[in-house]
Design a protein around this nucleic acid. Structure first.
Lengths: 231, 231
DNA sequence: CAAAAATAATAGTATTACTATCATATTTGC
DNA sequence: GCAAATATGATAGTAATACTATTATTTTTG
């Protein structure tokens, strides 16, 4: 897919930051390099002090943008899912055939990332790696319930519900549309992880993308469960 | 399913512990209460000091059993998957029909846990909650490659490959058997998480189990992809 | 150019994730 | 039953983490 809305600003939940990182050069540097550093050393080993060192800035300055590293991770992943939502809406607009819409959606959501020139400071390829490796950690916490109420996972939820609708458009009788949509999103990340680290646990590789697997899975299931029949 | 091999000891990779926790009363207490405490406060907030306080023991004593809390988590999840593997093998033995075998396997691997009297000190229901919430964190680290080589994920891998074989037994033409098997295992945990925390993202609930969803998904896909046809 | 705002530097706190040492129980082998 | 071995407990100490607070220095802008 070509570059879409050049210069368009991706907006995330304002409660995820103390000061909007898009509002200053330092803020952008923090976001840009946090992605690179988290990818490099992993979220557990990532600290604001190390990031400060990387960007030649002070720990205390980073705290003025993000309350803590958990909020920063939520910011980064929200940004990612918002970006994906833009791609999804753009790629599926003006397609008539519901099956083609669904296929396109699955492609957008599970294929390998290509760099987009939407924003100069965020490297979407590296951000995707961060999402694959760290996104689960943003919700597998004791704070989920509270943060869910604060809408910190709103975009991700909305994305799944969009996909759910597309699934139902193909087969309105299918009884597990939300479950299937969430399987595609979560499983999409997981298959990329497996390909990289446990290659014997998936057929996905350089030549066979998770998108192909999920397209086959979703479409065959929907066709088979047509008209109320199960199995 | 009824209790199976009463008194059978579940063995996990010896490199996951310094001293076998099954070899002493304190060791069993550590395992028993670590499950309860991790479930209660979450893995991030869990420390050996807090666990020591809970069991009226000293932090330093716990370090004599486990190198660190990450290894303890690997121990607990390995125990869990070994226990699941026993159940799987037991439940599917002596079934002739390959479809029935697969259906039974999916049930065992994705259904809600029932307490098993296999070991007195481990509460499998709570351990299952820990696995749902924390298992991903055991492999989403920068140490995966190294720990994979040390066979710390061996049982989990083997379980997926067992399921893969069962999938291929139903349909040897299906080209994504490993990917589908890993989707069932990982997705099984994820659907339980969604049901609990993001209920709008899944149809699974008290009455509709993830097992039903995955059985429908897997069997309809395998039937539809029969004889080499895709989609 | 002064005032305001942003950033940097420094210091300090409680907690974490350990390691090391020594003291005290408990077990076991003769 | 007792000594030796082993297990456990208590204490102390270290470097790093995850912050907060304060003050100093730049940079921006009206």
């Amino acid at each position: 897919m070509k570059q879409l809305f050049s210069g368009l600003k991706i907006e995330v939940n304002k409660n995820l930051y103390v000061k909007d990182p898009e509002s200053s050069a330092l803020g952008k540097k923090i976001v840009e390099n946090s992605i690179i550093l988290i990818d490099k050393i992993g979220f557990e080993n990532f600290t604001f002090k190390k990031l400060g060192f990387e960007i030649g800035s002070n720990e205390s300055s980073i705290y003025r943008y993000f309350e803590n590293k958990h909020k920063l991770l939520l910011y980064l992943t929200s940004w990612y899912w918002t970006w994906k939502e833009y791609q999804l809406v753009f790629a599926t607009s003006n397609i008539e055939d519901t099956e083609k819409v669904l296929e396109t959606a699955i492609n957008v959501l599970t294929r390998r990332i290509k760099r987009d020139n939407l924003t100069s400071h965020i490297d979407e390829i590296i951000l995707n790696k961060v999402v694959v490796n760290e996104f689960s950690k943003s919700y597998l916490t004791k704070k989920v319930a509270k943060e869910y109420k604060e809408s910190f996972f709103e975009i991700y939820n909305r994305l799944i519900l969009r996909l759910k609708k597309m699934i139902l458009a193909v087969n309105s009788d299918y009884p597990y549309a939300a479950a299937l949509a969430s399987t595609v999103l979560e499983g999409g990340l997981h298959q990329h992880f497996l390909r990289e680290h446990f290659p014997s646990l998936t057929e996905c590789n350089e030549n066979l993308s998770p998108a192909q697997y999920f397209n086959n899975l979703v479409l065959s299931t929907l066709k088979h469960t047509k008209n109320g029949q199960k199995n």
